[in-house]
Design a protein around this nucleic acid. Sequence first.
DNA 1: AATTAATACCACCTTAAGATAGTATTAAAT
DNA 2: ATTTAATACTATCTTAAGGTGGTATTAATT
Lengths: 137, 137
Amino acid sequence: MQLNNTVQYAIRVLSYMSAGEEETLYNVKALSEELEISYKFLTKIMTVLSKADLIVSIRGRVGGFKLAKKPSQIALIDIISVFDPNIKEDICLLGLGECDSAHKCALHDQWIKPKADIQKMLEETTLDGIDKNNLKF
Amino acid sequence: MQLNNTVQYAIRVLSYMSAGEEETLYNVKALSEELEISYKFLTKIMTVLSKADLIVSIRGRVGGFKLAKKPSQIALIDIISVFDPNIKEDICLLGLGECDSAHKCALHDQWIKPKADIQKMLEETTLDGIDKNNLKF
DNA sequence: AATTAATACCACCTTAAGATAGTATTAAAT
DNA sequence: ATTTAATACTATCTTAAGGTGGTATTAATT
């Protein structure tokens, strides 16, 4: 019950970027040092986030990345679904393909409530609603 | 947000075994065919479950496995924690080591409630309280 | 025009989970 | 005693996530 590494990094970076002034440019070198994330791995993640239109990339000497939207318009679910599109679908806890009211898996009834709560939390929590402290170890 | 393969298999097998009469012996060959789980992989899992005292192994020609306790005494949390001991600890959603009221991660406040709900569900749901249908694809 | 500092791309390395293969051990049935 | 059918153990293969390295491209500065 944990987000995978890539998603964790993405959330941490975007949280960090949403703490500053709007339109602020951040370069990956600085971000990687500040958040203690491997520079190379982080460039990869940033490129993906950029293609997903969560951030805007500006190339060239004084380039960098900035948020593409206001922090209040980027929800956790938006970030997670970039790397894990399944999050939005009703995936079965037990990995059994179709798991709905017609074909219930063994844990369907128990899981349906917590799952909805998490879904709701991920949809309602945006970058401006989260604590910007302790973004690294 | 899904249980890993090994844990999924373990839950499915134990669910299946808890559907029959108490003390019924099951051999891995039959279980693997019935639940469509690789035989070799399943023997591995059964050995672990046996060492964790959730099932009892009986070797030899008419051997097999049977539940070590009543279905009502085996909760999901007991099964999961055999393969993922961290489940019982308060692991940070963002993978930041210490995440408690003193050192909150960015998502601490949002995650604390759903996490508690899941924990509760996993503790309260036992093998006799779950649906035994649709244990395979 | 050359340099520099940034992102973008492509290929590869590493690690752990998932899965397989072969053999050893156990104990009932013959 | 031998055979047989079960679990137990050890080593290896496969795959995907995580991570690294090198080079190309872009664009401001000099």
